[in-house]
Design a protein around this nucleic acid. Structure first.
Lengths: 190, 190
DNA sequence: TCCGCGTCAATACGACCGCAATGTGACAGC
DNA sequence: GCTGTCACATTGCGGTCGTATTGACGCGGA
């Protein structure tokens, strides 16, 4: 075969460029040309790997999900062996919150995709599955209704962090407060 | 003066058309032409009342806020005289959730504006003020940290309702569950 | 050796965009 | 009844969009 190249690597490279554009200028600024320019390529290259724009968007959505999943895994691993369920859940939730620039960029893209999905059912389906998977996993460590509430709370906190409505400390306080109400306060008052 | 018309009425008419387009086809489908067509007018008319597209978008954002505010007021009024704080809060929160088609349409537009605002600080400022006002109002009827958490929870529930991740009953259950934990369960068990 | 395919650039095309300039009809005041 | 001005329609410009087409280049297999 001629000129070997790793296609998935290329695709990921393009998707990364897409996310940079989306995080900086919004999802509506994502065009074949802008993404190609950001990736240092031509529109032809982008089109070679993604036949249509929709394909590209869908792949980017999967990449964002992958980022979040990887961060969650790393955060849980960092807890050491046999961590308490509460700590696992807390660590995972914290990865959903835009608490540093990397997570903030992903958060912006994820938010943009939520809006994008609001009028595109097949995209919404992808997100829905992701959320349900997380909720079900949480439900193995806490009552199912609490897992449902927790996930919505975290999503809302992420939204308010993204718009700078709440500072980070407030959001984390709200998260810990809710975890307290589910698992009981660690040891202090009440 | 020649041919009198009510300018704010026209502006609202155009903004309504904008929101119909945004709810059905997403905010990125909002263009002068589409909005004008939806309003049964010409682009010239739209331009006459909104010099630039940004102006139009900002006005539409205010209209959405107005819708929500009006619904909240009506819902609280419907509670009768001297309602309990918990019922006031519940009624207001319910108006933030997309539980019928009208609120769902507004919710879609509001979500789109969140994403829109993520890369436009001056738009985010408008939303931020709205959320803070609501939070502060809630805080007059419940502990301030709880008001913060509640607002984020409701926003998250709205997001999940919009993507059909949660059914309405689940979302309302989560809302009531949280209100229980703040105000105490009305009378039943525990 | 050279053919064919994977890879990528360049360019063209038609649609649509925001915006501005210009045209037109209706009405109020003189 | 002429005229100025407001309300709106029409048209066109410059630009960007997504997509399709075309062709050049590099290299493994015959």
């Amino acid at each position: 075969m001629p000129k070997r190249v790793d296609p998935t690597e290329r695709r990921t490279l393009i998707a990364d460029a897409l996310m940079r554009v989306a995080a900086e200028r919004g999802l509506e600024a994502v065009s074949l040309r802008h993404v190609a320019a950001e990736a240092g390529a031509t529109t032809g290259l982008v089109q070679h790997y993604f036949g249509t724009k929709d394909e590209m968007m869908l792949f980017a959505l999967e990449v964002v999900s992958g980022h979040i999943g990887a961060r969650m895994e790393a955060a849980v691993d960092a807890l050491g062996p046999a961590p308490a369920p509460r700590e696992v859940i807390r660590a995972m939730c914290a990865q959903l919150l835009p608490l540093d620039e990397a997570r903030r960029a992903d958060g912006k893209v994820a938010l943009a995709f939520f809006a994008y999905a609001a009028t595109r059912p097949h995209v919404a389906e992808v997100q829905r599955r992701g959320s349900e998977g997380l909720r079900d996993y949480f439900a193995t460590m806490m009552p199912e209704p609490a897992a449902t509430t927790l996930l919505a709370l975290v999503e809302g906190l992420a939204l308010y962090l993204l718009t700078d409505t709440y500072p980070a400390a407030t959001a984390l306080g709200a998260l810990d407060g809710y975890l307290d109400s589910v698992f009981g306060r660690p040891d202090s008052l009440v």
